[in-house]
Simulated assay, not measured.
Amino acid sequence: MKAIAVFNNKGGVGKTTLLCNVASYFKIKNEQRVLIVDADPQCNATIYLFPPERINQFYNNSSTQKSLYHIIHPYKRGKGYLTIDEMPIVHSDGFDIDCIIGDTRFAVLEDFLSSEWIASKSGEERALDTTFAFKSLIQSLAQRYDYIFFDIGPSLGAINRSVLIACDYFIIPMSSDIFSIKAIENISESLHEWKEDFNRSLAEYQRKEKIAYTLNNIPITFGLQFLGYVNQQYTVKRIEGQARPVKAYDNIIRRMPAKIASKLAEFTPKINQEQLIIGEIPNLHSLIPLSQAANKPIFKLGGKDGVVGAHFKKVSEFENVIGKINDHILSNIEVYDNFLAQ
């Protein structure tokens, strides 16, 4: 089972749209068992995956309908963890995919997770258990799913840190602006620091307890790797029949490969600069709001969802694009698997 986070330190880059469409493609086209975990307190993935009436059912019945908050909050009390049969997993009919829904209350756990991270540096076992809560969640679901996709907010805070150190891979959606490139520097610096603290915490635990820390009897390592990035939301023009980004976007796009490859080299063993570009998605204009209104992936949109005329061609083009992204993701995962098997 593989756990993949879709993440950027900059907001507004189309993160949730990319994640939900890729995850749904994995499920529908690849026939994989897929789960989305909405770990963004803004709950954008939940809103995208489910129609308004279903959302109302979820949050108007908070006494019975559980969310991600109910999985992590028990760590604050040090007891009452949910079993796999109690996991708050619901199914999105439109995307044909399972989801652990988000919760705005999850934001109040940010300070708790931050303090536990600090305590874990002294090798405190309870703090380590909390720090690796998402890793424990992934372990408990490993037999049920082939892929778990995590949607997380545009921050470098404690919640996202807890998710990212638990995942196997991360993907960065990039908008074609200078701020996305600057965000790569923040991500690089933070990941390097987290990795050092992660290893220092486990070493301190082993020094104090004379035994390696394990989670559910499984050794823990920092295994996060960078799968690649997707250029999004740029405008194209036709040159000799070929779609090309307009000059203002093209100048920025040309700077991305070298910048990303150099800043994230620590997390890209055996993946070259060209392989890190896993896809390009031009501006989809009205297809995104149509997809949001229908609560289904863009590649499944049809006439009853408001698609008319030339939009049918755009839907088909998007399916080809998301299919190529799917292929590149699987190819890079295979490279990493072969590398680790050596």
Rank of each mutant, 00 (worst) to 15 (best):
M1L: 01
K2D: 07
A3P: 04
V6G: 08
N8F: 05
K10Q: 10
G14H: 02
G14E: 02
V22I: 14
Q32W: 00
V34P: 05
L35R: 06
V37W: 01
V37I: 14
N44T: 06
A45L: 08
L49W: 05
L49S: 08
F50R: 11
N60Y: 14
Q65E: 15
L68Q: 05
Y69L: 09
Y69H: 13
H73T: 12
P74A: 07
P74W: 02
G78Q: 11
G80F: 01
T83Q: 10
D85F: 03
E86L: 04
M87T: 06
H91V: 11
D93M: 12
G102Y: 04
V108A: 13
L109R: 08
E110H: 12
F112P: 05
L113D: 01
S114C: 11
E116D: 05
I118D: 12
A119V: 04
S120K: 03
S120G: 07
S122G: 15
E124A: 13
A127M: 05
A127E: 02
L128I: 03
D129Q: 05
F132I: 02
S136K: 15
S136G: 14
I138L: 15
L141P: 14
Q143I: 02
R144L: 04
Y145W: 03
I148C: 06
D151V: 03
G157P: 11
I159L: 10
N160P: 09
C167S: 12
Y169A: 05
F170A: 07
F179K: 10
F179S: 11
A183K: 08
I184M: 11
I184C: 09
S190G: 00
L191V: 02
H192I: 07
W194Y: 10
Y205M: 02
K210N: 05
K210H: 06
A212F: 00
A212M: 02
T214D: 07
N216F: 11
P219M: 04
P219R: 04
F222N: 03
F222G: 00
Q225R: 14
L227S: 07
G228N: 06
Q232L: 04
Q233T: 10
Y234Q: 03
Y234P: 04
V236N: 14
V236W: 08
K237A: 11
K237S: 12
Q242W: 04
R244M: 13
N251I: 08
R254K: 10
M256R: 00
A258C: 00
K259I: 15
K259H: 13
A261L: 08
K263C: 08
K263E: 12
K263D: 09
L264F: 07
A265M: 00
E266G: 00
E266H: 11
T268A: 15
K270M: 09
Q273N: 13
Q273H: 10
Q275L: 10
E280Q: 14
I281G: 08
P282N: 02
P282E: 02
L287I: 09
I288T: 12
S291Y: 02
F299T: 00
K300C: 00
D305E: 13
V307W: 06
V308Y: 15
G309F: 03
F312H: 15
F312Q: 11
S316A: 11
S316G: 15
E317K: 13
V321H: 08
I322K: 09
D327Y: 07
H328G: 03
I329K: 12
I329N: 10
I329C: 09
S331K: 15
N332H: 09
Y336G: 01
